[in-house]
Design a protein around this nucleic acid. Sequence first.
RNA 1: GUGACUGUAGCUCAGUUGGUUAGAGCACCUGUCUGUGGCACAGGGGGUCGUGGGUUCGAUGCCCAUCAGUCACCCCA
Length: 419
Amino acid sequence: MNKIRNIKGTKDLLPDTTFIWQELEEKIHHFNQQFGYKEIRTPAFEESDLFKRSVGSETDIVNKEMYSWIDQGGNNLTLKPELTAPVTRAYIQHELGKSNPINKLYYIDALFRRERPQKGRQRQFHQFGVEVFGSKFPEQDAEIIIMAFTFLQSLGLDDISLEINTIGSKSIRGAYITILQDLLNKYRQDFSAIDKQRLDKNPLRLFDSKDLKCREIVNETAPTIYDYISKEDRLHFDNVCSILNDSGIQYTHNQKLVRGLDYYTRTTFEIKSSSLGSQDALCGGGRYDELVEQLGGTSTPAVGFAAGIERIIMTLENQIQRSHKSIDIFMILISSDALSPGMNLANNIRNKCNLSVITETLRRSMRSQMREANRLNANYSIIIGEDEIKSNTAIIKNMQNGEQINMDMDKIINYFIKG
RNA sequence: GUGACUGUAGCUCAGUUGGUUAGAGCACCUGUCUGUGGCACAGGGGGUCGUGGGUUCGAUGCCCAUCAGUCACCCCA
């Protein structure tokens, strides 16, 4: 019989790495609470239409990467490939805007995209992010950009860089794309097959083509979107920049920064790490002022970002030292008569002293149990064998200095309370 | 979806110009130590050399296919 394996592009997090996740998740909760953001959790799957209408039916995510299926009731469902759309859906559905003019939300969640796995890319992966509904003002853009950047900095990541851009409103972007296509069509024969596809489907991507010649043509002949956006858009962007300037955070205005999802308007940004390889974006986000209305809510400005947890952990990996977590007490039980008294004692210590206690369940030799206590880095071991049962005592051994004392059972709790 | 590279013990990897019982280090188990860890020493378990086919007297090694992994493209966190 062949063994069943995990699905391609998914990962088991084994006990020797989960502590990293736990620590990072705690930091994310703490950090967001410091900014007054509240956690939101949405279901693992949604109606497929939600993503078609928000992310964009022409995007790769929707076209070829979604895990979709028809369920037994005939509904077309999809495992969420991103989180802005579900959170926006929840915001609209529960009328969060009615009870509060501004909603500052954050999440930590698993996402699913059927892509070919590679470094920094999986089919199930995790993101944390924030979404803010209600403020159209540049200080809100700046707040979340500062949040994203300072959080990553606080983790000790040094090789990170922040790029920001503005892409105007959706209608302006549409007009700009048409201009771009008309202009660049003249050079079509000079483009590679991939870039020809881009020209038709997503000409903004031509700005960061891997093909040097293509990049050269585009850079020399094409105007950037900054030349086309409205006065208001430009003012908004300038205000975001000036707040960032005052905050002291280093950034670059990358006029070619493009985001792949349809719903973005005005501000977009990305944080990259140079230590990641080809998939170097740790965090991406921007403003999406038109999405709420587009999904059937009353027009509400919004802005948010998402950061890849696996990618963050990867960049962290060099500096993580496998902290050998210690336990407080290992309970060595030698005779079968010792099992019940030992387990009861262990429970008492857990409850009354708030210590971690592991009890032997393998009936190993004393020597093996001692080794186990040592391997687990126990501060103390408590030994109960036949002699101790007879005299209603236990041996308490300090594993650091090897000293041990014989103690009456009913005094042990007190001993550990005093600590 | 396309391309390149890689698959030998739980992990990291040697190895055979095709030759009979396939190795090391770490980890694990036991003993030296009859109820006491770390150190040391001695021993032990664990592999149909990814899977299937072909060539050959003989394949872990060569050929083909297949699966899996890794990295890159596309795209994205």
